[in-house]
Write a protein that binds this DNA or RNA. Structure first.
Lengths: 225, 225, 225, 225
DNA sequence: GATGAATGAGTGTTCATTCAT
DNA sequence: TATGAATGAACACTCATTCAT
C-alpha cells in the first residue's frame, strides 16, 4: 500500500537557506531599491538585510545591475493570461467586472511588495531604458489590453457610452498608479495629516469610475454651461 | 542718411553671465535630477550642461545637496493664493471652474519644467524627507485645499453630489499626477506604440470627471447590479 | 633520517596582515605627518608607504583626521606612573637621578619614533587644538610634574640651590625639546656642516644642568659684575 | 634761502597703500603661515587679512610658494654684522655680554613677529629644504658664529671653563628656541594653567647659563658621585 | 559555498592660479 | 592697478567588485 502522500519535509536548515538565499536577497533588494532608488542603494546594505555578506551576494548575482534586473523580473507577476481567462468567463455586468479588476489588482499587486516595482520603473526609467521596456512589454501592455477588452465589452453591451479607448484605459489606470505612489511616497502625494485608507480609496474610485462611464443620463457632456 | 547699423552691444560677458549662472545651473540640474535621479546625477554633468566647469558650480551652491534643495525651492512657484483668488471671483459653474483648473495647471505646471519636481519628490522622498515635507507644505497642502474648496462649492450649489471630500480631492489630483508621470517616464506608463496627446488627455479627464461628479443622472450608484 | 626541512609556514596571509595593518598604517602616517605636516601629507601616500591601497586605509580609519588622532594617541606611551615610581625608590643623589631621567628619556622617547609626536604637536597646535590639549594633559603635565618632584627633592636635600620651580622645570625641559627638533629639522637648528651626536649632547647638557643647579659654590649669582 | 628740510610728506593714501601692499601681504602671510602652516593656509585668507582680493596677491607674488619665500626672506633680520661689531667693542665681562645677547635677541626677535620664522622653518623644513638652507645660511650660521665668539672670549679670559664649543653653543641657543616655541604653541610646551613670563624666563635662563658656565666653582664636573 | 579584506575607479569638493573686465 | 568669476588639477572619501582563505 502506498504511503499517503506527505507534505515534503522541510529541508535541513542549511540547505533550505541555501535555496532561499536568492529570494531573500531579491526581497531585500526590492525593499531598498524602492525606498532609496537604484544608485543610492548599496549592495552591502542589501546583503546585510538579507543576512549574508557582501561577497555572497555576488555569488548569486554577477553585478548590482543584474541584481536590479532580477528584482524586476522576479517581481513581475505576469498573471495576465489567467486574469484574462477569468474575465472571458465572467457573466455579470462590465461594471462589476471592473470592480473585480480593481479589487484583485489591489489584493495581488497594490498591497503587496510587487507594487514597489511600479515606483521603481517610474523612477529609474531614465537609467534603465531596457529593463523598463521589458516591464512595459510584460506588464503595461497586457494590463492595458485587459482593461481595453473590458471597456470594449461595456461599450458593446451598451453599459458604457462611446469613448476613445486609448484615453479611457488611462482613466482606469491612473487611480491605481496614484494609489501605488501614495503607498511609497505618501508625503509627496497627500496633504499633511491626511488619513488615507487604500481600500476606501479603491471603493471610491470604482464608484466614480462607473458614474463617469455610464452611458445613460447626461444629455450633454457639459451640463453646467 | 540711414543710421549705421550697430552691432548689438554685447553686455559685459563676465558680468552678464554672473547673473545668469545660478539660473542656468538650476535649469541643468533640474533636468538631470529629473531624468536620472539625485544620486545618479554627477555635478560635473550638471556643470557641463550649464556650460561651466565643475568648480564654478560650487561657487554658487555649496554642495550637491544644496543644489538639489535650491532646485526644488526655486521650482516651486507657489502661486496658489493668486489661483485661489481667481476662483473666488469666478461666477460660472463649478464644472467650468474645474475645467479651468485643469487647463491652467497644465499650462503653468504640467507642460513646464516644473512638473519634473513632482517626479523628483516621488522618487527622492525616501532620501530627502525634509525637503519633501517642504514640498508637501508648499505645494500639496495648498493645492488640495484649493481643489477642496472648488468641490465644496459644487456640492453647495447642488451641481455635485455629496461625496467624501478627502477622496474626491484625490480623484481630481490623480489624473494630473498620472499625466506628469507620462511626461517623464512614458515607457513605464503607457503601452508600446501608444500615441498620447496630453491636451486630449486633459480634455478627456475633465469630461470623465464631471460625469462622475454630476449629481443628476445616476438613479443608483451601482446601476449594473 | 633527517627531518625534511619544512618551509616556515606562512601564517594565513590575509589574517596576519589584518592584525598588522593598523600598526603599519600608523607607522607610515607618523613618519609622513612628522616629515611634511598634516595637510601636506596625502592619505594615498600613507597607504602606499604601508603597502596598501588608499581604500584599505579607510577600512581602518574613518577619516584622515581620525588617522591623525590615532597616530597621536597611539604614540603617547604614558609611562609616567612607572617612571615616577622608579624615582620614588631611587636612593642616589638627585643629580644622578636627573642624569638617569635624561638618559632614559633619550632611550625611550628621544631616539624613537615617538619623538616625532612632539614636533607634530608643535607644528599642528594651531590646527588641532583639541588633540594638542590631550597631549598636554597626557604628556606635558605629567612630565613637568615628574621633573618638578625631582627638583624639589634636590632642593630639600640641599643639593640644589633654591629656585623658582616653574622656570627651573622649563630649564630641564628645553634641551630635550631642542634635541627633538634637531632630529626632525636639523637644518633649521644647526649650522651648516655641524656634526652632532645626540648622546654627547645629552651628556653635555646634564653636566651643564648640574653645574647650574648646584647649590654650593657660587658666592654670588652674578660672579662677573 | 633754502627751505628747512621737511619730513617727506606722507604720500597720498592711494599711492601709499600701493607701496604698502606687499608689506601688508607679507605680514598677513607670516601670521597665517606661522599659525596654520604653509599648506593649511589659503592664499585667499592671506589676501583677505591684508584687505585685498585674491587676484591682487598674485599681482605682487607670482605664486604661493614665492609668497612663502618672500615672507621668510623679508622677515630675516640679518643684523648679525652690526651685532657682531657691537660685541667686538664691548669691554665688560663676557657674562654681561651674553646677558645682553639674550636680552637683545628677545627684544629684536623673540618678542617680535620675526620669531614666527623660527617656528616656520622647524615645521616646514621637510617641505622647503631649499629655503630652510637659506635660513640656515643667513640666520643659524651667523648666530652660532656670534655665540661661539662670545664663548671663546669667555674661555680665553678665564671667565668660562673649557668646553666643547659645538655643544656649548647649542646650550646657549636651546632656551631661546624653546622660548620661541612657547610663544607659538604654548599648549604643546607648557603644563595646563601655567603662567609664564618670557622676560622672567630670559632672566632665569641667563642666570642658569652663567652658573653653568662659570669656571670657578665645581671642583669636579660630577659633584655627586 | 561563504566570507570579508583588499582594491581602484569614480565622485564630491577644495583651492592655487588665470584673465576678462 | 585691482577685481573676482572661472578654471581644473588635486585630494579625501565611497563603493562595486574581486579573490585568497
Amino acid at each position: 500500500m502506498p504511503a499517503r502522500p506527505t507534505l515534503p519535509l522541510p529541508a535541513p536548515k542549511r540547505a533550505r537557506r541555501k535555496q532561499a538565499r536568492p529570494g531573500e536577497l531579491l526581497d531585500a533588494a526590492l525593499d531598498l531599491f524602492v525606498e532609496k532608488g537604484y544608485t543610492a542603494t548599496r549592495v552591502e546594505e542589501v546583503a546585510a538585510r538579507a543576512g549574508v555578506s557582501k561577497g555572497t551576494l555576488f555569488l548569486y548575482f554577477p553585478s548590482k545591475e543584474d541584481l536590479f534586473k532580477a528584482v524586476v523580473r522576479e517581481s513581475i507577476v505576469g498573471r495576465f493570461e489567467e486574469w484574462g481567462a477569468l474575465m472571458e468567463q465572467f457573466t455579470g455586468s462590465t461594471g462589476e467586472m471592473l470592480r473585480i479588476c480593481y479589487q484583485s489588482w489591489w489584493e495581488r499587486i497594490g498591497c503587496t511588495r510587487a507594487s514597489g516595482i511600479t515606483k521603481l520603473m517610474l523612477c529609474e526609467a531614465g537609467n534603465f531604458p531596457e529593463i523598463v521596456q521589458f516591464y512595459q512589454h510584460e506588464v503595461i501592455d497586457p494590463a492595458h489590453a485587459l482593461i481595453r477588452r473590458a471597456l470594449e465589452r461595456g461599450m458593446a453591451s451598451g453599459e458604457f457610452r462611446t469613448m476613445d479607448l486609448d484615453y479611457a484605459v488611462q482613466t482606469v489606470v491612473a487611480p491605481l498608479m496614484f494609489l501605488t505612489l501614495t503607498r511609497h511616497s505618501p508625503v509627496a502625494c497627500m496633504p499633511h495629516g491626511a488619513d488615507f485608507n487604500p481600500q476606501a480609496f479603491i471603493d471610491h474610485q470604482i464608484d466614480h469610475l462607473l458614474h463617469g462611464l455610464c452611458a445613460a443620463p447626461p444629455p450633454s457632456s457639459h451640463p453646467f454651461p
